[in-house]
Each structure stands twice: as C-alpha cells, then as structure tokens.
Amino acid sequence: MTDRTTETTPLTAEAVESALTGYLTEKIKTGIKADDDIFASGLVSSMFAMQLVVHLESTYDLAIIGPELKLDNFRTARAMAALVLRLTEDGVAADA
C-alpha cells in the first residue's frame, strides 16, 4: 500500500503563508512578515508582481485569471495565501 497522506493533506492558510514568507524573505533578502505590504514599502518593483503570479501558479498548480489577477491579491503573504486557498478546491491542491 502507498502512503498518500502527503498528497492529500489539505493546504492550510498557515502553511501557505509560511512558505510564502520564506520565499519572499529569500528573494527580497529582507525579513518579511505575513502582513507586510511588499509593494507599498518599495521593496520590489511591479515586475516582481508577475514573478509572484508565476510562482503561485507553478507551485500550487493554479490559473490566476480574470478578476483575481489584481495587485491587491499579491501585496502580502497573507493575501496570497488566501488567494491560493480560494483557487484550490476545498483547500486541496488541484493535482492532489
């Protein structure tokens, strides 16, 4: 029997948030908290916003389109985590 628990573990806001703060801290080379607005603080340019879109789409197997493709969804790790959860069925990644 194969253990599939890792594949079916539901995504939680906390887990996504902490993965994203880690990603941001590594990319921006500055400690980032879950509710820091990375665009307001001038830490990154608008080009980085698209890097975040691509990162979320590939990491969580999502398509971010239509009205969800707006900067407010990417300002903080918390907002991005909420977006990921909204776009994944029942909080489970689409490919699980």
Binding site: M47, K70, F74
Partner: peptide, 11 residues
C-alpha cells in the same frame, strides 16, 4: 501574453 497579464495585474 505575459505583458498583457502584467498590464491587467497592475490595473
């Protein structure tokens, strides 16, 4: 296509 998405993202 990428730049169109960027433009949309930035409003």
């Amino acid at each position: 296509a990428f730049k169109l998405r960027h433009a949309q993202l930035m409003g």
